[in-house]
Amino acid sequence: MAAAALRPAILRHIRLSPAMAAPLVGATAAGQPLALARWLARPMSSHDAHLTRDEVVDRVLDVIKCHPKVDPSKVTPEAHFEKDLGLDSLDTVEVVMAIEEEFKLEIPDLEADKINSLPLAIEYVANHPMAG
């Protein structure tokens, strides 16, 4: 029958391969270190969609490159808005607002005034718990 023919095929997919099962056994036998490492690697909150630093860097760079007054070839993760990219203080406000919009944040004025370079912007976004 068709079901009988299907059964081994399904089981083959479901069954754990020996290679996958071995580390699990090893971990319990060898003791804590591996298990602890795995437990720590797991996100501890339900908010596990947090951005990685690389993703933040990429998206911040994209936002800056899209700004009409910026020369995209000059944009690096170390660039200073005024010294390297030739932006003035009004442009900087616009750029920081664009970053806010990209990550759905609201940066308070006091903080936004301090962000005058890409490293600061990246650091602010990467450390912000609500950045999305």
Binding site: S89, M97, E101, D113
Partner: peptide, 17 residues
Amino acid sequence: AKTEVLSLFRAFLRTAR
């Protein structure tokens, strides 16, 4: 002051959006 002007500009952009 410069910061006052920039914060007014920021308020404009926030309102515009």
